[in-house]
Amino acid sequence: MTKPAINPPLPRRRPNSNEPTPEARRDENPDEPVPEARHDKASSSAGTGRGGYGDPPIKNRWPKGQSGNPQGKKPGTKSLHTLIEQELDVVIEVTERGKKKKYTKRKLAAMRIVNKAVEGDDKSLTVLLRRDGAMTVAVLPSASVSNEPLSPGEQSILDDFMNMARIAVEREIREGGA
């Protein structure tokens, strides 16, 4: 079975380099009308109300003051992401050990996550480890969780980690950096 022949598009007429431009023709014979260029937007039906590219007919145009998208997003509307970012950057004053300090809400949330992880909260510890990229190995559904006590070596590693995290949090609190 053969495919039907598709006629190739005709090549565009290229202007002859010897042919004078409309401006040159106007200069040669000022009385003779000069044909305008076809695709010149300035000389097209723009503004005539007849219609054309970028110039819809007058009867189809929106009335003055009426939106083309009346149910659309209102100007100045902020996304949820922007609102959360703005709220996290708000500075609040906190009394800490009898002294008033200023922190951003973002800083306070980070301090709380780290403190809860140090206290042994599994969810906070998971958030921290995922944040630092330490949990790159996925737990398979077939993996079982053991309730056996940790070996002395494992307990030592866990204690060292918790101490390092506690020291880092205390240093951050002392420095008061936001």
Rank of each mutant, 00 (worst) to 15 (best):
R171I: 08
V127E: 04
T82D: 15
A24R: 15
T95S: 13
L108W: 01
D55H: 08
M135A: 15
I157D: 11
R130A: 14
H81N: 11
K123S: 13
G177P: 06
E154F: 04
D27V: 12
I6S: 09
P63K: 00
S43N: 11
T126S: 14
V91M: 12
V139Y: 05
P20G: 14
E119C: 02
G47S: 13
S43L: 12
G177D: 06
M162K: 06
G47V: 07
M164C: 08
V34M: 05
Q86L: 08
D40L: 09
L128P: 02
R50Q: 07
H81Y: 10
G177T: 05
P4G: 13
P11H: 11
E32V: 08
G98A: 04
K41D: 12
S156F: 11
H39M: 14
I92G: 10
L125P: 03
E32K: 09
L80S: 09
V139S: 11
S43H: 06
R174D: 15
I157Q: 13
R50I: 00
E87T: 01
E85P: 00
E154C: 06
V127Q: 12
V169N: 01
N163Q: 14
L108N: 04
S146N: 13
V145H: 09
L140H: 15
P56K: 00
P8V: 07
P57G: 02
E32F: 06
F161R: 05
L108H: 03
R61A: 01
L140N: 15
E148C: 11
Q86K: 01
K59Q: 11
R106P: 07
R12Q: 06
I84W: 04
T48K: 04
E172T: 05
K116T: 02
R166C: 00
K107D: 01
E96H: 13
E96V: 13
S144G: 08
A5P: 00
K59I: 00
V34T: 00
K101G: 09
V90Q: 12
L108Q: 04
V139M: 13
I84P: 03
S151V: 02
E85V: 07
L80Y: 08
W62Q: 01
D122C: 02
K3S: 09
L83C: 05
E96N: 09
I173V: 07
E85G: 10
I58V: 04
G133T: 01
A42I: 07
V91E: 07
D132W: 10
P75R: 15
V137N: 11
N60L: 02
G51A: 02
Q86H: 03
E172C: 11
P152K: 13
S144E: 13
G98C: 06
R171P: 00
N29G: 10
F161V: 07
E85T: 01
L158I: 10
L80R: 05
S124E: 03
I84K: 05
P57E: 00
K101Y: 02
G120K: 03
V118Y: 04
S79L: 13
